[in-house]
Structure formats: structure tokens, C-alpha cells
């Protein structure tokens, strides 16, 4: 097995707030192999973005990583312990060097009073020793590559002169110009129309093949995940509840939460299928449920409800590293072993 590009182990992250320590990420572990697209799905408040930001140490000052949390980045045989990197110079590798990020709202991520081109050139010059002229050349080349018409003119424009789809393309061009090994895409298509979303997804797929990058693709849209990811991790209230290949998770989901998400989606091929919401609301992270974090909204616990309330489920591992944190899946496994 090839060595993972990035390996997250037992990541636990809390924020210091006026109301006490808030657990945003709880004991999360996953690997991303070179060239692999990992989809990270979950509702708002599930801790997707915070997890991704930990990979670049972008979380706010009040973030506290637990002892034992580990993020290891392996580049060309060298290992970097990401959470131990201190100081801007050392962090260059995870801040646009080997890891880049594109955000949901491109209008908010570009500086409004600096031209798009200037921002692209600036980061290229920080990450390499190329000349300004060379950086400009590469930037324009990247703008062309992501399908922006008249790139030389666009280079001198400001973010407000771009449409939403164009801005997201420019953002992708900028993130990829340093040739990162891992691209973190945080809801990159959520603010876009479906027709533009389809174009951006296509573009990202092409670029993955071309640059042989890994992507951590964060979204709440299972359809987008089904179209892009190789593997999927489902997050709920800071915990990973299910991880597996995209076919395992979408076609044969094992966790009641994953099933609940799929059932609540309107499906075009069956207009009569009722929309079944996951009952209740996601609890406040200040008040995390005991036992299984999902037990307050789970409709499948039935006989073992008491156990779900009190006992934290252990991860059961199935074929192709299909991981589920659920007492039901565990008891099914045991029943299977005995049979």
C-alpha cells in the first residue's frame, strides 16, 4: 500500500469560549492517498471546515489541539508534523506550498482592492524564487487553463468585475499555480448555480488528473460527492461516523445518519418517494450527547436505545476499510461472525 499523502490521527480540537471549552472535532482519523479525492460530508456545525483548517493550521487563536492529535504530511519521503509547525516560515509548506485551499465564497476570499493578477503573482513569488515577469506569465497561463476568456485582460481586473463562476475559477487557478499536492476545497460549488457547478466540477476533475493532486472535498451535497469523490467520510457533531468508498457509503450506507441524509434528499427519478427528514436538530456542541453523539436523532436504535445513550460505539471495520461508528453495525457484525 502506498504511503498516505496526509494522515490525520486522533484529531481532537476544542475552542476556548466564554461558555467554556467547546469540542468542535472529536477523535477524528483519516488518510488521503496521493491522487485520491476524499469527500467530507456533513451538516453545518458538524466540524467539516474546522477539520480541514487544522490541516493548514488556519484555526483561530483560541483553538486547542489535544495531546495525541497528529497530522502527518508526507512529501517526497519527508514527513512534516503539521500541528507542530510554528512560525510563518515553517508553515509555508502547508499554507499554499504543498497544501492549498479554495473557499466557498470567492468574493470574500479575494482582497477587494488588489487586482486578481497581483494577488496571484504575490503568492507565487512568496512560494518560489521566480521573477515577477515569470510569475505573471504563469498566472496568465493558469487563468487560461481554468477557462477564463481573455486572461491577459482579466489579470488586471478586480474581484468585483468577475462573475461568481469566474471568481471561483480564478480562485482555483490561484490555488493550483503553486502546484500543491493536496487541495482543500471547502464547499467550492455551494454558492454557484447548478449549471456553473457542473462546469467547475468538470474542471476540478480534469485538474486532478493533470496535476495528480489529492483533494479533500468538503460539501453538504451528497450528489456532488457521488460525482467527484473516491472515498467519503461522513461527519456528525465533530465525529466521523462512517468512512468508506463512495459506492459503499452512497449505495450501502451503514450508519443511520448517512441513511437519514440520503432519505431526506429529493430524488428526481422517484417523485412519489416521501421526503423523510432526520428528526430534530443537530445538538449544540456545548451540550454534546452522551454515548453515541447521534442517539438524540436516531430512529433505528430501537431495543438497544439504552446502550446508545450510555456507551460510545467503537469503530467497526468492514471490507475495503469501510468504517462505521454504530452499535447497530457492531451487533450486526457479531451476529454475522456467529452465523
Amino acid at each position: 500500500m502506498t504511503k498516505p499523502l496526509i494522515s490525520v490521527k486522533d484529531l481532537t480540537l476544542r475552542f476556548k469560549t466564554d461558555e467554556g471549552l467547546v469540542t468542535a472535532v472529536n477523535n477524528v482519523s483519516f488518510d488521503i492517498a496521493p491522487g485520491e479525492v476524499l469527500g467530507l460530508v456533513g451538516e453545518s456545525g458538524s466540524g467539516k471546515s474546522v477539520t480541514a483548517k487544522s490541516l493548514m493550521m488556519l484555526n483561530a487563536e483560541n483553538a486547542v489541539y489535544d495531546e495525541g492529535s497528529q497530522v502527518i504530511l508526507s512529501i517526497d519521503g519527508e514527513e512534516y508534523d503539521v500541528l507542530k509547525l510554528r512560525g510563518a516560515r515553517d508553515q509555508l509548506i502547508i499554507r499554499g506550498g504543498a497544501v492549498s485551499m479554495i473557499f466557498q465564497e470567492p468574493m470574500a476570499s479575494f482582497a477587494p482592492a488588489i487586482t486578481i493578477g497581483e494577488q496571484m503573482v504575490e503568492q507565487l513569488m512568496i512560494h518560489s524564487d521566480m521573477t515577477r515577469a515569470k510569475a505573471k506569465e504563469i498566472s496568465i497561463e493558469m487563468l487560461t487553463r481554468v477557462g477564463i476568456p481573455e486572461p491577459a485582460e482579466r489579470f488586471g481586473q478586480y474581484a468585483f468585475e468577475f462573475s461568481g463562476g469566474m471568481r471561483q475559477r480564478a480562485m482555483i487557478a490561484m490555488a493550483l499555480s503553486t502546484k500543491p499536492r493536496l487541495l482543500i476545497a471547502d464547499e467550492p460549488t455551494t454558492a454557484l448555480d447548478v449549471t456553473i457547478q457542473a462546469q467547475v466540477i468538470d474542471l476540478m476533475k480534469d485538474l486532478v488528473d493533470e496535476f495528480h493532486m489529492s483533494i479533500l472535498f468538503i460539501t453538504h451535497d451528497l450528489g456532488v460527492i457521488a460525482q467527484t469523490a473516491d472515498r467519503v467520510a461522513v461527519m456528525y457533531l465533530g465525529n466521523l461516523v462512517e468512512t468508506g468508498t463512495v459506492r459503499q457509503v452512497i449505495n450501502t450506507p451503514s450508519h443511520p445518519y448517512t441513511r437519514g441524509l440520503l432519505n431526506s434528499l429529493p430524488k428526481l427519478d422517484d417523485l412519489d418517494a416521501p421526503l423523510t427528514p432526520v428528526p430534530g436538530d443537530i445538538p449544540s456542541p456545548l451540550d454534546r450527547p452522551s454515548g453515541c453523539v447521534f442517539h438524540t436523532r436516531c430512529v433505528e436504535s430501537g431495543d438497544i436505545a439504552e446502550r446508545c445513550r450510555s456507551e460510545i460505539p467503537v469503530t467497526s471495520i468492514g471490507t475495503d476499510d469501510h468504517r462505521v461508528d454504530c452499535h447497530l453495525a457492531n451487533s450486526r457484525d457479531q451476529a454475522g461472525d456467529q452465523a
Binding site: 462573475s163 447548478v194 457542473a198 450528489g223 457521488a226 459506492r247
Partner: peptide, 25 residues
Amino acid sequence: RALLSAIPSLDPDVRGNAQKLEGEI
């Protein structure tokens, strides 16, 4: 028709056969 086909399919085995609209509104 283009709007319909741009909706990402939930089936991981049906990828990329959407009829893509070029350009923007």
C-alpha cells in the same frame, strides 16, 4: 433539459454524462 442534467446524480457509477451548458447567464 440542461438544468435537469446539471443536477449531480447520486449514483457514483453515472459520472460526467451531463449535457453541459457553456458560459454564463
